[in-house]
Design a protein around this nucleic acid. Sequence first.
DNA 1: AATAACGCGACATTAGTTGTCGCATCATCA
DNA 2: TGATGATGCGACAACTAATGTCGCGTTATT
Lengths: 372, 372
Amino acid sequence: MGYPRESLSFVRRGKLLIFITVAKVGVTMSEARDTLFRYLTMLQLIPRFPGRIATPVLKEKLAERGFKIDTRSLQRDLSQKLSTQFPIGCDDSQKPYRWYFDRDFQCQLPALDVPSALTLVLAEEYLKGLLPPVVVGQLSPHFTDARRLLDEMNANGLSQWAKKVRAIPNGKALIPAEIDESTWQTISEALLEQKAVDFVYLSRSSETESPFTFHPQGIVSRHSATYLLAHVNGFEDLRQFALHRIKQASLSQHPWQSQSDFDIDHYIQSGAFGYRQGPSDVTLEAEIAKPVAWLLQETPLSETQTIEALPDSNWYRLTAQVPDDQQTLWWLMGMGANVKVTAPATWREALKKSAEQVLAHYQDTPLACETH
Amino acid sequence: MGYPRESLSFVRRGKLLIFITVAKVGVTMSEARDTLFRYLTMLQLIPRFPGRIATPVLKEKLAERGFKIDTRSLQRDLSQKLSTQFPIGCDDSQKPYRWYFDRDFQCQLPALDVPSALTLVLAEEYLKGLLPPVVVGQLSPHFTDARRLLDEMNANGLSQWAKKVRAIPNGKALIPAEIDESTWQTISEALLEQKAVDFVYLSRSSETESPFTFHPQGIVSRHSATYLLAHVNGFEDLRQFALHRIKQASLSQHPWQSQSDFDIDHYIQSGAFGYRQGPSDVTLEAEIAKPVAWLLQETPLSETQTIEALPDSNWYRLTAQVPDDQQTLWWLMGMGANVKVTAPATWREALKKSAEQVLAHYQDTPLACETH
DNA sequence: AATAACGCGACATTAGTTGTCGCATCATCA
DNA sequence: TGATGATGCGACAACTAATGTCGCGTTATT
């Protein structure tokens, strides 16, 4: 990742994307440097609204990054330069003032271009059906930015873009479970900063609300629901917690317990989310109807797929290496009569049995009803 | 949309997110104002790599935005300030120099926070299976930024985040069709700026490659394939073109023909993509197995869903208002024996018939084989 | 109630920025 | 190919902005 030639002359300063020349570093190390830069750094240090930062803290952080500036200058910059020119607010209800960016302000440095804006709009359409509203909301400044750019682009010829772009999700869009913003923030922070969390969990089975300390190990977003993988304080076994049933989350004082041998992919494939996966790929062989053949020619099942026409019919023979998982089986099931699986035998049997059971449901005389 | 109290004191300047005080506007109108601001504006005017901007053009654009600066100053700023501090490159192979941002540079102004970064990572996981690689690549600077933040966050305790976050797509992930970058750029620009495009289309049926002029009306991304809706020069009827079969796209000289009565939602629901939708919602009634009941309790089918336990079994009764579309029917089909639809009758019949057909496929003795 | 921390106006000093000019180089067009 | 207008760039002086310091009033903290 990088800046082929220039890379030698640039240095990352702290966590920011601010670059300073090697020459200057060599000469004076942490001399003040451009005000432009200090301003940009400040702008990056000021968090978006729910967060805020106190002036002395800002001064401290700036110093860490090499900007040894007088407190007075900082105050001047904040109250006279930045906050008049940017949507920056100040909480002056108590004395070390706290500064924050407006909740929905967004500024990309290389500004968005048209294709990227369009991509963002598409992405939003997809994600709205996949992630909880709050989580997508996290990105709303990005999307808003994109929409604004598109809006302004054809301000003359009416902004038509909203009528021109659609994303059709890959399957039935269920309504994502609602979670609240602070929960998402706390959980994501805990997970990534390796901290324990306390929260109340509204258990599905029992109606009990149990406050405990949890040690997050992972997050899995499945369909439209999102789950935290964690173990309860003092226990060894990993459990899943639906994010939308977590209430009153807050970082815990307890030290975080890691689980060294935890492998999230292994965990998922072992069937925890109903997606059991065989250890290796299987070779799928099937006869498929024309519409399916067309679909798969455009968006293949896998890298190694072959499709050939069968003589004397509108059917095709499909061969593909696919993972041995529930997802694929469901997909085959959704194709209904348009697919006739010949191998592997287990799938063939599974599909047959499923069809038998379905049929049994709809048989007026429950003749062969050996179901549930 | 915006800044409740401050809104009066801020004015949008041009297309940028740069704000200037009303007071200053009143006094001197377009006086130069802060260098900081001019710099930021310049940074926003300089496009990301494939694009570039010539110095005189930049001067012109700055002037439009109220920065009446001498050419010399511009040159100094570019070559001495910005390009030494930012990953900005210069094409000096011909005389009006062209400036551009490094391809993968990204700088958010309120810096990314941890929850947003995590959301971006999840979003990327989902989108990779939904949109063509190039399109997702359009956003890669965002994702890279997020990953970098997470990487640096727990640089001490190893960056574990990659092992902690997974998105399981909603259905079988087909491999998105590949399209090339310039095609995406040209098509998206044409669509949004209402221009005609010339391209060669590799027709699916015929092997002919036909260069024509097209008038884009919309884009639909379905599953993992993306389609342009356009009509061919001189014709009235709207046709779909898979983006990955479009080659050699370029903006056309022809004026763009609009189609005033075009409604993309209507178009989709009329069945163009296999998603025919009835005019109104239907009331779905079904008996569902326990796992499905659990799933739907978390991520409902619709806003108006009710689920109640049936006596003496592990089954539940589901009632929901759902759209009368293929998507929903497919979803029901994918549930297999876990769902028993009682209404509407058409779906019940459809499911039954589908099951019969599937069964016929797998019947060794094709007893009731009335299929194809 | 005392002390330290913070915000802010003012001011002198320092540092950076800007336009101008002159010259060299490059692109364009005849 | 040669003339003409653009463009880039070094230098310099005038100008503008940024910075640290001091003092005072106000606000937390103990």
